[in-house]
Every structure is written in structure tokens, then in C-alpha cells.
Design a protein around this nucleic acid. Structure first.
Length: 200
DNA sequence: GGTCGGATCATCT
DNA sequence: GATGATCCGACCG
């Protein structure tokens, strides 16, 4: 459903694993730069707390300026710079003082696809639509997300998440997270089964 | 199809 | 000084 109300704090104020699963099928509505783009979340990863060694807020790291948003209230965007190049979007979950978040790993374009194509390929022929948001760095570009949105409440423009399509228990896959070097076997990555926009 | 190296920088050792 | 929740283009087969 397009135009649904934003997800509320109660949705986010749960363990990251539950939020990661339930974010599948919901819609990101971005009005960054006066252009509206809407995309369905098709892949997520949970970073479940200080005991999660792969988390930016793992116990051995503690609270730093980068991960400060993860320690705050649920329902806010945690955005970080990846490999010095990409902006990656997370959603803060659980409770204040307990750092947990869900990384959005892939999206499927729903509206504003021309804007997304232009942002992704400004100086060359557009690639296939399945490459617009099939990865955390890619979807950041497509939706116009930058570090200035770190700490932004996701119930407000210009970046919101609203209810979308309910993804049933047999229509998603759960498996190991991608690109990490610790806790590589923890099954905290969720994706819509068979969706061509999933990163892998 | 697959593998490899470069880009680029905030954060941490 | 090294690392990393990545991506892309080049090259190989």
C-alpha cells in the first residue's frame, strides 16, 4: 500500500532480529532533494547488540562518535560511511542504551525509478533495474542518502519507512550475514526469496 | 561465469 | 599505519 502511515516506535522497539525480518516488504519513502523515490525493502541484516562481535557497537568497541546513534532511541536512522566511499542506511532498534540496528542491504524500486537511475548512473548508460538497489552502497545512492541524515527520525520526511506488503513465513530466506569478518555463521540476514533485487 | 585490485576516509591501534 | 556491514571496471576463461 502506498501512502500508508509510517511505522511507529513500537515497531522498532523490539530485538533487531525481529525488526529485520518484519522490515521485509515495507517501503522506504525518500523526498531528499525535492524528488520522491519509493522502494521496497527486500534484504536486511540484524546487528543484535553489544554481544554481537560483528556490530559497530560490539562490546570491545564501546560507544564512539560513529556508533552513538545506535545507543539512542529506536526508529532513528543510523548512517555510516563504508570503505570511505558509500553511505549505508540502518534502522536503530530495541531500547535506549542498548545498541542494536538493522542494515538495509537491498531495495526494489517502486516509484521515482528515473530519479534512481540518474543518481546511480549520472554519466553513463543506466545499468539494469535489478542493480539500482542491490547492495547497501547502491541503495544509498539511489535514495539520495548521506551522512547528514544520521540520527533522523524515520517517522518524518525526508526519509520515512511505511507499511508495505506483508511477507509470509514461507516467502523469505534467513542465512549468514555478508562482508563481515566476525560471527560469520550467525544467521541474521533476511531476504525475500527469489527477489531479483536481492544483493546475493 | 569468475577473480582481482583500486578507490577513499573515519575510526581505531 | 591498518582496517572495513562496498562497489566497479578490468581481465581471464
Amino acid at each position: 500500500m502506498i501512502g500508508a502511515a509510517p511505522l511507529d516506535t513500537a515497531f522498532y522497539a523490539r530485538p533487531a532480529e525481529a525488526v529485520a525480518r518484519d522490515l521485509l516488504g515495507t517501503l522506504i519513502v525518500s523526498t531528499v532533494g525535492d524528488e520522491t523515490t519509493i522502494a521496497r525493502i527486500v534484504e536486511t541484516e540484524a546487528y543484535i547488540g553489544p554481544h554481537d562481535p560483528a556490530s559497530h557497537a560490539a562490546e570491545r568497541i564501546g560507544r564512539t562518535s560513529r556508533n552513538a546513534t545506535m545507543f539512542g532511541a529506536p526508529g532513528f536512522a543510523y548512517i555510516y560511511r563504508s570503505y570511505g566511499i558509500h553511505w549505508c542506511l540502518n534502522v536503530v532498534t530495541d531500547t535506549v542504551g542498548f545498541p542494536a540496528a538493522v542494515l538495509i542491504r537491498a531495495i526494489e524500486p517502486v516509484a521515482g525509478i528515473e530519479t534512481m537511475r540518474r543518481r546511480r548512473w549520472p554519466d553513463r548508460e543506466p545499468g539494469p533495474d535489478t542493480h539500482i538497489g542491490s547492495g547497501p552502497g547502491r541503495l544509498g545512492v539511489a535514495l539520495g542518502i548521506t551522512g547528514t541524515l544520521d540520527g533522523h527520525p524515520l517517522e518524518q520526511p525526508p526519509l520515512q519507512i511505511t507499511a508495505g506488503t506483508v511477507v509470509g513465513p514461507t516467502r523469505f530466506t534467513k542465512g549468514p550475514r555478508v562482508g563481515i569478518t566476525r560471527a560469520m555463521d550467525w544467521p541474521l540476514r533476511f531476504s525475500i526469496r527469489g527477489n531479483p533485487h536481492v544483493s546475493r
